[in-house]
Design a protein around this nucleic acid. Structure first.
Length: 741
DNA sequence: GCAAGGTC
């Protein structure tokens, strides 16, 4: 039997259907859907993996953070465990009857490694299998037939290169994460993570924040005049010096300006505005980011559009359509439906020549629309993203846009003023892709020598602005430029920084904890805080892939480097610990106590709960409550009324909850409680069953098992029956029902 | 409980 292995289920299915002349059978093996055709020697079975099906980790004995020193992880044994149990057992089952296996995973380094992971599993059950490898960049009939007609060998060196990355990431990440967390005394879910990609990314954000902190705003003045033509058209002109740094200078010019202006010169020209290039993941996220989507939500939506067949694979580096895609046919799909007029205009062209981006890779095609969706079958958000992909696709075949620009110069009492106009004369691609288009800036028709009236002269006082914080789209672009992360992981890295409470808000703002971690790393483990570690790793991986150097050598060198980092860390342990704790403490400051003037801090109670307490305790016992779960983020916004920092709560998997000023929040909560009391004759109506006195965690679980998970269930259930199933006395159940009724 | 990389 001939086994064909693809990187994902959908790829296996589509490749199978392209290669099968006769009917395809779908057969379930160990809970995994496989596809097959042919019989006897000619039988072909197609199975899709789910990316990596195994992962690297340390043996269990290393799991205890307190007992095992971080340094011990450096040369600890690294073991491989399966993460996709069903797929692994399906491979083992199929492996026994396999005579030949073809690796058809994605055409990139990780794809080679993923393929070899499957090879190792197959070899473990059947050493006689013969292997080959096929390469394709798009799942089209032409590419698939070409690929399978011309198979090559598995590139074990390339897979080794990928494997070295896995080991280095695990060893460096796990050991430094453990070290920093222990040094800061942050264990459990409050641990402080460190990694080859996340730490340099965090350092970028911290660095920008430092630039902002160090920024000294400088005042400047702008001089403008409101001009009127003979026909009565009014427009603005600015002095040719766009910023005056001295108030006296602008004042002295202002004084001498009379009330007439002369048009001294008019220059018109045309400017072409080039079509955009095809979407790869980074460009897509960046465009979606401009529409208000976070990187993660853009990718989640893209993933769902892809899974439903509406767009092509969303994780790609490629910005050049491969020749194997019939682009005209892809546009013809849209000759009906809401994009009809756009598609028809493109199809009327004799030749369709798409733009090409700078990056041409073998992994996947750029992101393009794969089928026609109906607005009604998508959510509003999905539709907007789909429309973005469709319009971008069209724009890459359109003509350039053309702007007519006018530069006008004026003389007012010997001073030069200017006004610039621009008008879109040939919409070109901008008709297809109307996102963030600059607006026309129209000037009245002017001729040199015209006399204009000066209606008013205005001096505006302004300030220079610090560099802006990074938005997610911008950060992802910078990460790509620096080689940090991959198309599939960059947005996840950013999400990780949020969930570690290193950053908050959008644009991204680092917490003091982030400052402390980055500063410690930069001082004592600079290797992992810089993008260079990735560049060096990439270079090493290239050498492994080329067969110039064995993987072992790279790993040894890397481990030695890490040992030397740890020697530095050990020498400065107290120093690191102190500066980390100082940073972490700063993130807990909420403001000044209104009662005694001491600091208000996030504190832990003896019972393990937390609250906002006063440092003046026990003399002062001012306190405010905090929600039980989630991580507390203290933002830089303050409350106008109470002068306390606003608070945001993050829970994994949920969007952050902006609680605002903790005192306002508490007062608001008290007010609601009072009202509820009034409406319920002095009693507060419980909202959750655990709010009812007498129902704790254990009872609540018991009730949930019996089908009572909220107040509504409790009211409507028959107390006798509930008593029978739970052994809770009927009387008790009735009293709870009274409490909520 | 740790990383980064696939995919869902």
């Amino acid at each position: 039997m001939h086994l064909i292995i693809a990187e994902k289920h959908i790829a296996a299915k589509r490749i199978a259907s392209i290669l099968s002349q006769d009917k395809l059978k779908q057969i379930r093996v160990s809970g995994v859907d496989t596809y097959e055709f042919g019989s006897g020697e000619e039988r072909k079975v197609f199975i899709g993996l789910s990316g990596h099906i195994v992962k690297l980790d340390f043996p269990k004995a290393y799991n205890n953070w307190q007992k095992v020193e971080a340094e011990e992880l450096i040369d600890a044994q690294v073991i491989t465990t399966s993460t996709q149990v069903k797929i692994v057992s399906a491979l083992k089952k199929l492996g026994k009857e396999t005579t030949k296996a073809t690796i058809a995973t994605d055409y990139d380094r990780e794809g080679e490694l993923i393929g070899v992971e499957a090879v190792d599993i197959l070899k473990s059950v059947n050493p006689d299998i013969e292997f080959d490898r096929v390469h394709y960049s798009a799942i089209t009939p032409k590419e698939i037939h070409d690929a399978f007609g011309n198979p090559s060998r598995i590139d074990f060196n390339l897979a080794d290169a990928g494997h070295s990355r896995q080991v280095i990431d695990l060893v460096w990440g796990a050991s430094l994460t453990r070290y920093i967390s222990l040094a800061a005394g942050r264990l459990g879910n409050m641990f402080l993570s460190v990694g080859r990609v996340q730490s340099p990314t965090l350092a970028l954000i911290v660095e920008r924040e430092k630039e902002r902190d160090a920024f000294v705003a400088k005042k400047y003045w702008e001089l403008s005049a409101s001009l009127q033509t003979k026909k009565g058209e009014i427009f603005q002109a600015e002095h040719k010096t766009s910023r005056f740094w001295e108030k006296e200078e602008v004042d002295s010019i202002l004084k001498k300006l009379k009330d007439t202006a002369l048009v001294s010169s008019i220059t018109t020209s045309t400017k072409t505005d080039k079509q955009p290039t095809p979407f790869n993941t980074t460009e897509f996220i960046s465009a979606a980011s401009a529409l208000g989507y976070t990187a993660s939500s853009a990718m989640n939506i893209a993933e769902s559009l892809y899974m439903n067949g509406f767009i092509s694979y969303p994780r790609t580096d490629n910005t050049v359509y491969p020749e194997s895609i019939d682009l005209r046919a892809q546009i013809e799909i849209f000759a009906k439906g809401p994009f009809k007029e756009y598609a028809e205009k493109l199809l009327a062209k004799k030749e369709l020549v798409p733009t090409r981006g700078k990056k041409e890779t073998t992994d996947h095609p750029p992101i393009y629309p794969a089928s026609l969706a109906k607005k009604s079958e998508l959510s509003e958000q999905e539709w907007k993203v789909y429309e973005l992909v469709v319009r971008r696709f069209f724009a890459t075949f359109a003509e350039p846009a053309e702007w007519e620009t006018i530069k006008a110069r004026f003389d007012i009492s010997g001073e030069e003023f200017k006004a610039n106009g621009a008008r879109l004369v040939v919409p070109g691609w901008r008709w297809y892709y109307p996102y963030n288009a600059p607006e026309d800036r129209l000037l009245p028709v002017l001729t040199e020598g015209d006399q204009l009236a000066v209606l008013s002269k205005d001096v505006a006082e302004k300030e220079t602005q610090p560099p802006g914080r990074y938005g997610q789209g911008r950060l992802i672009k910078i990460m790509e430029e620096l080689g940090l992360g991959t198309k599939a992981t960059r947005h996840e890295i950013i999400s990780k920084l949020y969930s570690r409470a290193y950053i908050h808000g959008n644009p991204l703002q680092p917490t003091k904890t982030a400052f402390a971690v980055v500063e410690s790393l930069e001082k004592f483990a600079p290797t992992i805080s810089k993008p260079d570690m990735t560049s060096k790793l990439e270079a090493d991986m290239d050498r492994i892939a080329e067969g110039e150097i064995p993987e072992e050598e790279v790993l040894n060198e890397s481990r030695e480097m890490l040992f030397s980092v740890f020697r530095d860390l050990a020498e400065n342990r107290d120093n690191i610990s102190e500066s980390l704790r100082a940073g972490l403490r700063e993130d807990k400051i909420i403001g000044v106590c209104p009662e005694c003037g001491s600091k208000l801090m996030v504190m832990r109670s003896k019972k393990g709960g937390r609250f906002i307490g006063c440092e003046g305790y026990p003399e002062c016992n001012f306190s405010l409550p905090l929600p039980r779960g989630g991580k507390v983020i203290v933002t830089e916004k303050t409350c106008d009324q109470h002068d306390l920092y606003h608070i945001s709560i993050i829970n994994s998997g949920k969007r952050p909850w902006n609680l605002g000023c903790p005192q306002c929040n508490f007062l608001e909560w008290q007010k609601v409680q009072e009202e509820e009391k009034k409406n319920n004759n002095g009693k507060i109506k419980p909202k959750k069953i655990t709010d009812i006195s007498g129902i704790g965690k254990v009872t609540a679980e018991k009730l949930t098992e019996a089908g009572v998970s909220d107040v509504k269930d409790l009211v409507s259930i028959d107390p006798l029956e509930l008593s029978r199933t739970t052994n809770i006395p009927v009387k008790k159940i009735r009293s709870w029902q009274d409490a909520v009724a």
